[in-house]
Each structure stands twice: as structure tokens, then as C-alpha cells.
Design a binder for these strands. Structure first.
Ligand SMILES: [Zn+2]
Ligand SMILES: [Zn+2]
Ligand SMILES: [Zn+2]
Ligand SMILES: [Zn+2]
Lengths: 150, 150
DNA sequence: TCCGACATGAGACTAAGTATCAGTTAGAAT
DNA sequence: ATTCTAACTGATACTTAGTCTCATGTCGGA
């Protein structure tokens, strides 16, 4: 059973209709590069209305078919979702995205729960860096090390 | 030396002018609640133009006077920056934000560096939950546990 | 084959941020 | 104090990302 068919099945099981527009959106994003914006999908899924593409992307997020990658500038990219909980490692120079599932936050959650009285429900982690291919092609004079935007 | 004066000094040291508009923006955000949007500042800093408020907020981010808090819906909030590297714990129901400096990613960085050949340069972590006051006032029937949006 | 809920596309609308540009001003040099 | 100019400003037009509305179309069950 192909990726497309699996997704279509998932749609049906959840009581959503399998329409022409949704198929065209799915075709578009299965053919797209590893990560893409809603706008990419809009251009590839020709004939499908703007609102419908946004609606479908939201639906696919709810169904865990795609997941959101937050770029450092705040813009949203998407990619076909890996199964289960995972995070992203984003290359700052070419935008390439890798998934990783390593996620040990239990100690942090313990600590925060007891020190703040919050009930921790979720978290969101993105890691930024430079992939090997970008590093070799653009050696980069001014190196920045281990910092984040906050 | 007050907070305001310190920030003004920092502006000067970096070669930026201390103008009336910048003072008014600073007044506005020092008087604002712990976290706020650009729009909040716009409304409080009366008479300061839209573009100038955006420009000033960007400048203050560069100077580490304010830092950005990413809400789960993608909207940007700001808060007066704590010194140094830290992350945010955001209450999903009232939006309250706490800083925390606990950040042990060295193991993760090691692991990712060797398994992906990326040079890790930064990361971004936000934790979401419910603060004690929201939990007691709205006991919440459907509990969700330890998940994130990906 | 009928029907109603679901889905759609066009386009108006909103929110958030940027670009342009003529006019103003901080603050340094004289 | 006066002059000078790069930095700064507000108004406003524009862009981008996403939502809302609504009349029309269609999926799929009865
Ligand atoms: Zn790269
Ligand atoms: Zn995680
Ligand atoms: Zn709360
Ligand atoms: Zn950290």
C-alpha cells in the first residue's frame, strides 16, 4: 500500500471525505522536496483554491500526516511527518531538515514541575546548525557557537 | 541606575541614537505586563509610528533588551530579556510566561553532531503547560499529557 | 436517485510586517 | 552657538500569510 493510499485510508477512517482537491494536495506534497511551505503546495496543486490548501494542510496536521517546522525567522515549513514524537535539526544555510527522536526531557519536566507548580503538557524543540555540505562549500569566517535566540 | 537608563546607555554604546520615539517605546514596554505583543506596545506608545515600533523592537532584540516568546499558534510575544541563555515555560490557558535557565543539551548536541555531521550552533526550546492558578480555577476534564506539536 | 452534510473556490477581508520617501533631529565637529 | 549630516521618523502604500463568507458543487449513505 503506497504512502498516498495510506493517507487516504486514514482520512476515511476519521470520517473525512476523499475529494479531488485533497488528492491533488496530497500529490503535490508527496512530490515536493523534503520540506516545503504552504505556498509551495499552492503552486504545485494547480487549480486547488487558496483556502482549500490551507484547510487541507491544517487537516493533515491534525491527522499527523505532516508536521510543522519552525524556522528561526518564524516562518512555517512543513514536511511529511515521521511517526511519533520527534524534533527537527535545521541547517541554517540551506534549510535542510533532519528528524531526530532523541528527546530526554523527563529530568527537565520533573525539575520545572516542582519548581514552578506548572503541569507540563508539551514542549517544542528545534535545533539549528550547519550541515556538512554547507560547511565544506562555505567555510564561514565568522563562527558562532552554541547560542539561541532568546 | 534604573532599567531605563541602563538600556539607554546600551543604545548609546552601540552607536544608536537616543530619540524621543525610542524613549516612548521603552517606557511602554517597561510599563507593560511581563509579556506582550508588538501590538500592545503600539497601543501604549501613543504617537509613535507603526514602522518605528517594529524597527525599535527589532533593535531591542539585537541588543538583548527583549526576547521573543513563540506561542504554540506561531504568534510572537516579547518580554524583557533575562540575562543570558534561557528558555520559556508558557501557560497554555492564561499565557503567563516563566523563564528558566536549566538547559542541558550538551549530550544531545554530542549525539546529533556525530550522527548527522551537522555543526550544531543553536537551539530553541519552549515548554508548554498549565500554571497552578489556571489548574485550580479550571480543573479541565480532558487531560492531555506530555506531547508536542510535531 | 435523492438528499443533506461536507467540501469547495472566489474573493473580500484581516493581521503582521516591510519598503519607500520626504521631512526631522541627535549629537558631533567646528 | 551654529552648522552639518547620517540616523531616524511618521505616513502611507504595499506584501505576505492566513481567515471568513457564501453561493455552488459533490460525496456517499438511505
Ligand atoms: Zn545545509
Ligand atoms: Zn521532545
Ligand atoms: Zn495560566
Ligand atoms: Zn538552551
Amino acid at each position: 500500500m503506497s504512502d498516498l493510499e495510506l493517507i487516504i485510508q486514514r482520512l476515511g477512517l476519521r470520517g473525512h471525505r476523499v475529494t479531488g482537491s485533497r488528492r491533488r494536495v496530497l500529490d503535490a506534497l508527496l512530490a515536493a522536496p523534503a520540506h516545503f511551505t504552504v505556498d509551495d503546495v499552492l503552486q504545485r496543486a494547480d487549480g486547488v483554491g487558496r483556502a482549500t490548501v490551507f484547510r487541507t494542510m491544517k487537516l493533515l496536521q491534525d491527522l499527523n500526516v505532516v508536521c510543522r517546522v519552525m524556522m528561526e525567522d518564524g516562518s512555517r515549513h512543513y514536511r511529511i511527518s515521521a511517526r511519533g514524537h520527534h524534533h527537527h535539526l535545521v541547517c541554517r544555510s540551506c534549510g535542510r531538515v533532519e528528524d531526530f527522536a532523541i528527546c530526554d526531557v523527563s529530568a527537565l519536566v520533573q525539575e520545572l514541575s516542582s519548581s514552578t507548580e506548572y503541569e507540563i503538557e508539551g514542549h517544542w524543540l528545534e535545533v539549528y546548525g550547519r550541515c556538512q555540505s554547507c560547511r565544506t562549500t562555505q567555510p564561514l569566517a565568522t563562527a558562532g557557537s552554541e547560542s539561541n535566540g532568546s
